[in-house]
Structure formats: structure tokens, C-alpha cells
Amino acid sequence: MQRSMTAPSRQHNEAIQFRIILAATYPFFLAAAVVQRVLPGRAPARRGLPAARRSVFGEAKAMAVSAIPFAFMG
């Protein structure tokens, strides 16, 4: 039995594109996270809640993952 070579699905292609864009933009978001961490008074204040801080790398990934989907809208 021989398998035919089919093109990857659209969802698979979008997942690959997402990872490529994430890898390309992550350094910019990392720089932004470092700048946010270094500059005093730039973090949004939370009322009465203790500040649960992520690592700079986690913060950069969170910013990238929240911003990149806008590239796929439309």
C-alpha cells in the first residue's frame, strides 16, 4: 500500500507560521519585557493584589503569544 503525498492541512500550515513569527518577534518582546522591568513605575498597579511576577522570558512569551494572533485575522 502506497501513501500519496498530500499537502499539510491549513491548520498545520498556520501552526508552523505562528511558530516562525513567534521565533522572529520574540527578541523584540524580550527587549520590551526587559525595558519594562528596568524602568521604575512602568508596570500597571494592581489594587490590593500581591504582584505575582513572571520571569522576563515568560513575560516576553506572554506578550508575543497575545499579539501574534492579530497577524492571522482577516
Rank of each mutant, 00 (worst) to 15 (best):
Gln2Ser: 14
Arg3Lys: 15
Arg3Thr: 14
Ser4Trp: 04
Met5Val: 07
Met5Cys: 01
Thr6Val: 10
Thr6Pro: 03
Ala7Asn: 05
Pro8Trp: 02
Arg10Ser: 11
Arg10Lys: 12
His12Gly: 01
His12Leu: 09
Asn13Tyr: 03
Glu14Gln: 08
Glu14Gly: 01
Ile16Ser: 05
Ile16Trp: 06
Gln17His: 04
Gln17Asn: 10
Gln17Trp: 12
Phe18Arg: 12
Phe18Gly: 01
Arg19Tyr: 09
Arg19Pro: 05
Ile20Lys: 13
Ile20Gly: 08
Ile21Val: 15
Ile21Lys: 09
Leu22Gly: 08
Leu22Glu: 13
Leu22Gln: 14
Ala24Ile: 05
Ala24Asp: 10
Ala24Cys: 06
Thr25Glu: 14
Tyr26Gly: 00
Pro27Val: 05
Pro27Ser: 04
Pro27Ile: 03
Phe29Cys: 12
Leu30Thr: 07
Leu30Val: 03
Leu30His: 11
Leu30Trp: 12
Leu30Ser: 07
Ala32Met: 13
Ala32Tyr: 13
Ala33Trp: 05
Ala33His: 00
Ala33Phe: 04
Val34Asn: 09
Val34Cys: 09
Val34Lys: 13
Val35Leu: 12
Gln36Asn: 11
Gln36Asp: 10
Gln36Ala: 06
Val38Ala: 11
Val38Phe: 00
Leu39Met: 07
Pro40Asp: 02
Pro40Cys: 02
Pro40Leu: 00
Pro40Ser: 03
Gly41Ile: 07
Gly41Pro: 02
Arg42Phe: 00
Arg42Gln: 03
Pro44Arg: 06
Pro44Trp: 02
Pro44Gly: 05
Ala45Glu: 09
Arg46His: 05
Arg47Asp: 13
Arg47Cys: 06
Arg47Asn: 03
Arg47Trp: 09
Arg47Gln: 12
Leu49Glu: 15
Leu49Met: 12
Leu49Ile: 06
Leu49Tyr: 09
Pro50Gln: 09
Pro50Lys: 14
Ala51Met: 07
Ala51Gln: 14
Ala52Met: 09
Ala52Thr: 08
Arg53Gly: 12
Arg54His: 11
Arg54Ile: 00
Arg54Pro: 07
Ser55Trp: 04
Ser55Gly: 15
Val56Met: 13
Val56Ser: 11
Val56Gln: 14
Val56Ala: 15
Val56Cys: 14
Phe57Val: 12
Phe57Asp: 15
Phe57Gln: 15
Gly58Ser: 13
Gly58Thr: 04
Glu59Ala: 14
Glu59Asn: 14
Ala60Leu: 08
Ala60Thr: 10
Lys61Asn: 11
Lys61Glu: 12
Lys61Pro: 00
Ala62Tyr: 01
Ala62His: 02
Met63Lys: 05
Met63Val: 02
Ala64Met: 11
Val65Lys: 14
Ser66Leu: 00
Ala67Tyr: 04
Ala67Lys: 04
Ala67Cys: 01
Ala67Phe: 04
Ala67Thr: 06
Ala67Glu: 02
Ala67Trp: 03
Ile68Asn: 06
Ile68Phe: 07
Pro69Tyr: 04
Pro69Trp: 03
Pro69Ser: 00
Phe70Met: 10
Phe70Ile: 06
Ala71Met: 13
Phe72Tyr: 00
Met73Gly: 03
Met73Phe: 06
Met73Asn: 07
Met73Trp: 07
Gly74His: 01
Gly74Glu: 08
Gly74Trp: 01
Gly74Pro: 03
Gly74Arg: 06
